[in-house]
Design a protein around this nucleic acid. Sequence first.
DNA 1: CAACTAAATGACTGTTGGGTCATTTAAGTG
DNA 2: CACTTAAATGACCCAACAGTCATTTAGTTG
Lengths: 188, 188
Amino acid sequence: MACFSKKGFAATRMEDIARSAKIAKGTVYLYFENKEAVFKALARSSAGARLQAIQEHIAQHKGSAADLLRLMISNIGEFASTSESVILPRLLLAEAGNFPDLVKFWRQELIDRGLGILQSIIRRGIESGEFRDLPPEHVARLCFAPMLLIVIWRTTFAKFDKAPYDYEGLIETHLQVLLRGISVGGDA
Amino acid sequence: MACFSKKGFAATRMEDIARSAKIAKGTVYLYFENKEAVFKALARSSAGARLQAIQEHIAQHKGSAADLLRLMISNIGEFASTSESVILPRLLLAEAGNFPDLVKFWRQELIDRGLGILQSIIRRGIESGEFRDLPPEHVARLCFAPMLLIVIWRTTFAKFDKAPYDYEGLIETHLQVLLRGISVGGDA
DNA sequence: CAACTAAATGACTGTTGGGTCATTTAAGTG
DNA sequence: CACTTAAATGACCCAACAGTCATTTAGTTG
């Protein structure tokens, strides 16, 4: 992951990978068919389990839809702004053109499922009268968009920041604006 | 642009570029030092002029901050969801690791300036009492985040859509949620 | 310890593709 | 048309690197 995320797929040499793993180049080929297989194995390493857990957690949640949404966004937000693993989605984004099957995999297993979860929360909020009647498929993406921005910012532009950017503050503001924006009451 | 955006920098051969331009490989080297120079020339082609124009337009705008914000977001949104040029930012994102100086250029010339414009609108709205007192640097990014999502969606995931996604609807919803979320009044 | 098996190595090979330049083609000039 | 200059070409060269495999090293068993 370190190698690929630093230079991209094409510019990473098998020797780089091997040295990074403290083994010889030939050894890599005992475990992987070729360079592409190394990359794919890496890219499939799954956040799927985590999503599964979230999905179940939500089904049995009793609080308001707003609370649930707040919870989810905080969670994803924390991941996006602190985890080292964000270079993985970043990497996939960068190499998307050369690995269409991986893109399809990620789209189905993570994006569609993730958006589905968000949508179901929003739909629930609308039905219960908490949220205004807005298109859930759009609102779900609005919930997620700032996370994507954080991932891209951290992995691409952060190195040129004079002062470290306050990701927590962004997420906090996002929650305030979003919840006020979709709630029916005069205040959120 | 067609070549690079299809396969990325490394996987694009000079012959591809040449054939695409209906000239011979050697001819490319009459106009560009090497492959990197071709890429950089492409990546520098500037939306800077457009930004300049926007900046001036805003200085003399008389309407409410909300109207101004709506205008800007609609504009950027239309660009993000219809222009073919989005493959350019997409490309830069993908190749960021290999061209740090280009990233710095884009960050300074486009991102910082663009965010600056948004921030100034928001600050104006806060001072005039239209908007709530939220951190402008965060709100500016919230304004922009869905555009980024659109760009990435279109250039990476759209090909797997069963039905074409309604980008206009997303932008419309974004405006509704955002303006209601940051306005002081009970309604936006 | 001898005999055997499994794992790891890295020198080597073949291919790919960036970059060069001798040659050809086209344009300009008196 | 003869001659000069500029532009374009693509066969060729060579460095880089993915992938191979004969050899070495480490581990296991009786």
